[in-house]
Amino acid sequence: MNTQLTSLTKIRRKVTFSLAQTGVFLLVIGMLMPVIYMLIMSFKTSAEIAESPLGLPSQLYLGNYIKTLESMNYISSVMNSLGITLSVTVLVAFLGALAAYPLARKTGRFSRWFIMLVALGLATPSFVNITPVYVIFRELGLLDTYLGIIIVFTALNLPFAVFFYTGFIAAIPRELDEAAMLDNCSEWQIFWHVIRPLLRPATATLSLFVMLMVWNDFIYPLLLLTDKSKFTVMIEVYRFVGNRNIEPDMLFPAAVLGSLPLLALFVVFQKRILAGVTAGAVK
């Protein structure tokens, strides 16, 4: 009797749990609806959008995409974003790791000040440095150049990179440095031959964040780039959609095309990206 009762409660608990689980799952799908909506809308004809705003498309209509790709400089803006991302990643990784090495190893007053400076950099909103950067770049002729935008993005990503690498290097045992020191390695040699190879996984994660930032940032390229051929993806999307007074048959394909590379990246590198996001959160 008693065992029957406990097995009944067990079953009831199981049912309640799977009901709750289904509920949570549906809620999450509900949260994803705007993304699904964006995808569905991009395949609907203008007539379908007008007649059944929430309905599914009757067929996989690609006309919107063809029209959008014809009038948007999609491929060239993707190339620009990729090229800028690659250059910025190399620069940020090198400068960030180089600065992080002493900060992780020496905890003197200098290191504490430097970390404070980096924290200030992390909290500074773009608007504070945007005017001075604009003025300096105008003097130096860096407005509307790839070099200028690469320098700016490097500077914007650097505080995060220094933070990120400092934590990572601090976890590398000092014994490795000391062993190399006994072999008469210089500090540079230790950094380059001992530390740097160990930073590969950190650099891989960092590069994803740089990619995310370069891809999605909007303010700096909006102000610094005026030449159409140099536009990054987001500026291209902004100019393209903004000039059309949101015609949905062009808006949604442009939105999908603009997000696609990053969403693909997320699907492939999900674990790494989520680990990077939460790395600082739990000590």
Partner: peptide, 24 residues
Amino acid sequence: FCRAALFTPSMMSFVIVGYVWQFI
């Protein structure tokens, strides 16, 4: 799955999220 699904919108840019929601 749910963690990744919920995280997806923050991988999108403000520009695109802004336009899509403007239409919503």
